[in-house]
Design a protein around this nucleic acid. Structure first.
Lengths: 136, 136
DNA sequence: CGGTATCCAATAAGATACTG
DNA sequence: CAGTATCTTATTGGATACCG
């Protein structure tokens, strides 16, 4: 009855276990800035400053932190380069990082396609104060 | 030079914009418990108590909160059912929710396949105290 | 430019107790 | 069983200032 073989693995994943290391990885990948960085670098390599400007709302602190996580996992490479007079630091996806792009983008594409539906569903839901309706 | 058409969209996504609604959706989907719930429900519908026991480490509070988010988005359905003497609440994916399973699972599969590599890469990285090495 | 360091506010989340 | 309510702690993250 399962429509897709991939569903079968849901029963077998060990991600439900509290000490499953994959869980921590997923947690980090799911983090706001980390995934945006990967999407940006999927486009092309970026200098630090470029990322800072391109990813609206990210602070220097969070950008550095997220980049370090990705670097430690071997998902991105960090390369300081002389550009004119100054040294800039260029970040790019490793081969491993590139292999993450397709699955990650599938989720992005889904989210973009379903955002409108979900937001209007949410509005309806919020007006339906059936449960939990005490007073403001 | 782009190896895959999907990469092209990276340049065009509006997710970099701070007020992009898709960003918030992605944020929520990326959250620890939300994604684990979807994976569990991809397997089969679950009662609340089943989810609580299956997803190790989740608290009642976080489980309820995450389920409400998914329900409000129309990703899951909530159905109270008489089971013997008591009423249990059954959660299952909606059709929309089911459409999320495949992309989400692609990321899960990637993470599971790459966990070992990433963890050992991280160990090496942590021993390399080249940058930022002040004292404990 | 590409970071670090520090401080502080906001938020998330665990524990616990209670309810229909 | 499936929540709600409340309190408290832990973690996150933004602002700011400074450094090589």
């Amino acid at each position: 009855m399962s429509t897709h073989p991939i569903l079968a693995s849901a029963a077998e994943t060990d991600a439900f276990s509290a000490d499953c290391p994959t869980r921590e990885i997923l947690d980090r990948l799911g983090s706001k800035w980390v995934s945006l960085i990967i999407v940006a670098l999927a486009d092309r390599p970026h200098y630090f400053g470029e990322l800072l400007r391109r990813i609206e709302g990210v602070s220097k602190k969070m950008l550095v932190q997220s980049l370090r996580i990705l670097e430690s996992y071997g998902i991105i490479d960090r390369e300081p380069k002389k550009v004119g007079a100054v040294v800039k630091v260029c970040y790019r996806l490793t081969e491993q990082g590139k292999s993450l792009v397709e699955p990650l983008f599938a989720v992005y594409a889904w989210a973009q396609q379903n955002t409108d539906t979900m937001l209007s569903s949410q509005e309806v839901y919020n007006r339906t104060v059936s449960r939990r309706a005490t007073h403001p």
